[in-house]
Amino acid sequence: MLNRVRRVMIALVVSVLTCAGTLIALSLAASPASAAPSCVPPAVIKWIGVSEYECVIPAPEPSPGTTNPGGENPGSPQPTCDLPAAPAPTSLGDHVLEGPYCQGTRFCVTTDLVVPLALPDGEPPNEDSEARYRWCSSGGTYQLEESWWTGEEEPPSLLERALSAIGQINLATPTLNTSPTGRTLVSLDTWFWAAGASPSATGSAFDLVATATFSSMTVDPGDGSGTISCPLTTTRAAAESDCSHAYRRMSSGGTATVGGRPAYSASVRLVYDLSFTVGGNAIVVPGAPATLEAPLDSAAIRVDEVQSIVTDVD
């Protein structure tokens, strides 16, 4: 009877679980094979010693998922965990070799082999290699995340993979061309284009693909008049309508030289938006840069002034 009373009390106290439990029951009923136990947040799994679990909403407590209190890193884009609030990995006993440490907002520990864990995939890289396991917690029980052999590099994090993939993107250095080439005249439209620039490029590392997609092209004519924005302009024909500038004064104060005379140093800047996929699915990589710039290129252009002298008037 006591058992029944307690069960009723639990049901009353966690009234929200009626809905959550229903959702879970429905989801379990509709789940494919091998669906892992789960609860609808904020409910978490509470294990029952008769081969069952319940979903309960834990009592409010300091969340490990918040950024460090006190605004120590107000500009930090990546939330971190509050290590003093890390649950003790007592369930893993003497197997814990390292941790708890933060991995994003979660607490993680590294252990050696715990029965009945499977050994890491693949052959150990050498005879001294040992199995290692990473367990992480969002404030409750530590759950197994990954395994590896010592003697091989630990699997890189998502951010590390993203940065590596970005490094594989080959945005060829565009060549800034002008027309007229090298020398132009005041008030004459001068065209600019970035030959060789790509609309997009990709790079990959492990299972992650980073894609750089053209976002903006800006040209600085070098005369101090400011930059001009252009669509991706890679040909002379396109430049005629899309990317031109008329200089208003001679380049006598320019920092570059053409033919031994002062010239302006014009430059082009290409910016690409970055996106990431794993297995074809778009993902967000916390901490990864949002944009990538192609290498800058510049061109010297001398601006002359043509003065006309009227010698005869009819």
Binding site: P116, L117, Y142
Partner: peptide
């Protein structure tokens, strides 16, 4: 036949 990443551990 063995637990691995993705398995759910009671741990309590």
């Amino acid at each position: 036949k063995a637990a691995g990443p993705g398995s759910t551990n009671v741990g309590q």
